[in-house]
Design a protein around this nucleic acid. Sequence first.
DNA 1: TAAACGTGGCTTTTT
DNA 2: GCCACGTTTA
Length: 785
Amino acid sequence: MSSFDDFDAFEASSLSARAMAARPAPYLDGLNPAQRQAVETMDGPVLMLAGAGTGKTKALTARVVHLLMTGRARPNEILCVTFTNKAAREMKNRISGMLGQTVEGMPWLGTFHSICVKLLRRHAELVGLKSNFTILDSDDQLRLLKQLVQAAGIDDKRWPARQLASIIDDWKNRALTADRVPAADAGAYNHKGVALYKAYQERLRELNATDFGDLLLHMVTIFQTHEDVLDQYQRWFRYILVDEYQDTNVAQYLWLRLLASAHKNVCCVGDDDQSIYGWRGAEVGNILRFEKDFPGAHVVRLEQNYRSTPHILAAASGVIRGNASRLGKELWTEAQEGEKVRLIGHWDGEEEARWIGEEIEAMQSGTRRMRPFSRDEVAILVRASHQMRAFEDRFLNIGMPYRVIGGPRFYERMEIRDAMAYFRLVVSPSDDLAFERIVNTPKRGLGDKAQQTIQTIARANGVSLLDGAALAVEQGAIKGKGAKALGELVVGLARWGRMTGDAAMTHMELAEVILDESGYTAMWKNDKTPEAPGRLENLKELVKALEQFENLQGFLEHVSLVMDNESDEQGAKVSIMTLHAAKGLEFPAVFLPGWEDGLFPSQRSMDESGVKGLEEERRLAYVGITRAEEVCTISFAGNRRVFGQWQSQLPSRFVDELPEEHVEVLTPPGLYGGPGGGAAMGMGSVGSTLHDRAAEANVYNSPGWRRLQERQGQRPISQPRESTSTVIDLQAVSAYTVGERVFHQKFGYGSVEGIEGDKLEIAFEKAGTKKVVARFICAADDVPF
DNA sequence: TAAACGTGGCTTTTT
DNA sequence: GCCACGTTTA
C-alpha cells in the first residue's frame, strides 16, 4: 500500500531547493535558444512542440531542475506525467544526473496510471472501492466480460466478448461512465453494450477491482464530484508537466485540465506529427487545441534536429506535408549532407528480405560511400508484426544475429500469469479471477462441472470461490479424485497464506514453495513439448525478480502497472520491430520495408478511419523516416503473400510523396535493366516521376514489360490520388477480356475468369485461381522475355 | 478429460 | 498461411 504521507514528505526530502537556488545553473548551458525558452518560461501554460530528435527530454528535464533550483516548487509539488514506465525511468535518471544526486523526493513523477493508482488508493471509498483494490489486466478483464456476456444469454460468436471489451475501453478512454454514454453509441454490441458496461462496473466493484481505464476515469469522476479533493490537489501540484501530449486521450485530458485549471502552470510537450496512437483513444485534437484550452499559452517550437542528416529530414518533411491538420513545424539541422534516402523495389517480400539481409552484411564492412555499420546500429521497422517473419526466416538462414523488439512481454506469458495467480490467491484469498485461473492448472480433475458446483455454492453462501470450494469439499458436493485435489489446494493456499507472515522465510522461498507444492512446477517438468524448458526458465526468472521487492504484495502491485520487460540481451544484433515500437528510438541505419498500398498505409486504417486514418499512417511514415540518423532505406515489393494468397501490390502512395531530390533509387543487382543497361532507363523522360523511376529500376522492367505498359497506356501514377479510395486502373483492366490467356511473371500462364475493379481474377495453370492487379499481367502472346 | 479436428479471422499496443 | 478458439470424438 502506498504511503499516505507524501504531503509531509517534503521536510525530509533529500532536496532542499532553496539552498540550491544560489548556485549557478550549468543545466542551462547546453540548451539552444528554443529549449532555453521552454525551460525558463515557468508561469502559465506552455506548449512545447518538439519535433523528432530535437532534444525534448533534455528540455523537459531541465525545466524540472530549473523549477527546483529556483525554488518555484519542492520536488513533491511537481506533477510530471509520462506514458510509459520507460519514459518515467529515463526522466528520473536524467533529473538525477543534472542535479548530481538521486531524486528521492519526486513521488509524482510517473505514468498517468501509476499516479492515478496512488491518488485512487487515497480516495477509493468515493467511488465505492476499498483502498486495497486490485488492478485487472486485459486478460482478467476479458474473462470477466465473457462471463457477463454468457450470463446475458448473448451468442458470443456473433458478438465476441473481445469486441465488448474494446467498446468499453473506448468509452473509458473518452471518460464516459455508463450513464453518460451518448445515445449515438446505444446500438453498440447489439444494443446491450451499455447494460453490460453497467453490469461489468458492478462486478468490478464487488471484486474490489478496477481495470486500467478505471484508474483514470475514477479519478476524473472524483475530481468532478468532490470539489474539496480537487481543490486540495490543484493547490498541491504547483507545476504540471506532461510528456507525449499528443498521445493523451479524453480522460487523461480532462484529468489534466481539472488539475491545471486553477494556476494553469502546465507545460505540455509533444509532437502532433508523431501521434500514432489514435486507434487506442489518443486524440491529436488535444494538442491541436491547446492554445484554445489555455488562452495565452506560450508556444515554443523545437525545430533544430540533432539526429538525422538533411536528406532524411527533408524526406520526412516532404511526406508529412501531405497532412492537412498540423500545427506546422519544419525541422532543420546543421549536420552534413550524407546519403540520400534510398528507395528500392523488389519482386516479392522474400526477395526484399534477402536483399536487406545482404545489404546489412555489406554495410558491416563498409562501402565506397558508407562507413561500416555494426549490426546493432541497424534496425528494420515494419508496419505490422507479420512482416517480421520474412526477416527472421532469412536471417536465421544466413546466420545474421537479430533481436525482435516487442512481442509478448514477460508478464504476459502464460506460465508467469499462472504463477502470479497463485501469488494473488495467497495474498488475497478472495481473488476469484485468480482462483478460476488456477483451480485446474495443473490438472486436478476439476472440469466445468466441478467448477460450476463451486460457483453455485459460493454464490449461495455469499463467499469467495475459494471459500466456496472449501465448503464444497466439506459438504461432499464434489466427488472422487477431484475432491481430494481440491481439498489439498484449499489447505495449501491457507498454509501458504500463513507463511506470508513467517519471518523465517523470505518471500522468494515462499514463492518457490507455492509453485512446488501446488504441483505447478511439476506440471512443466513433465511436459514434453519444446517450450516447457523455457517456461521453467521463466519461472526461475520470476522468482529472481521478486528479490527487489519486500514481499509478494509489493511485487504484485508493481507488476500490475509495470508490464514491461526490458530485455538486456546483448551482442551486436540487428533490431526488428514495428514502427510503433520504434517511436522514441533512433538508429544510424534504418530499413523501412513493405511500403505498399494496403500494407502501408494499411487498408484497414483507411477503411475504418478514412482521411483521419490515412493521416495517422502518414505520421507513422514520418516517425519511421525520422528514426534514421545516417542511412534510411525504403523498399516495397510487387508481390506479397497476404493471408496465404499471393497478391500484387502497388508501391505505397507515401513513396510518391518522397521529394525526388532527396531520394536515390537503387536497382537490385542481377536483374533486368541495371543502371546503364540501355533500354531500361529509357523511359525516364519528361514528366518522369520518382514513382516511375522506382518502378523502372526494379524487376518489372524489361523491354517486353515496357512494351506492355505502352500498350496499356502509361498510367499517370504520381498524380495526387484520392486519399481514401484506391484509384482503379481502368485502362489496364480494360486491356483484357474474360477467357483471355495471360501470363504473370510469378504464376505463369492462366486465363482470365473475371474482372473486379483494377484486379483480374485469373485461373493459373499451376498456381490456382488468384486475384492480381492488371498491371502485373500481360497477354500470353506478349510475354516480356 | 484430453487429443484431434475444423473454422474463422486476421494492424498497430501501453497501462 | 497461421494461430487461436471451439467443437467433436475417443
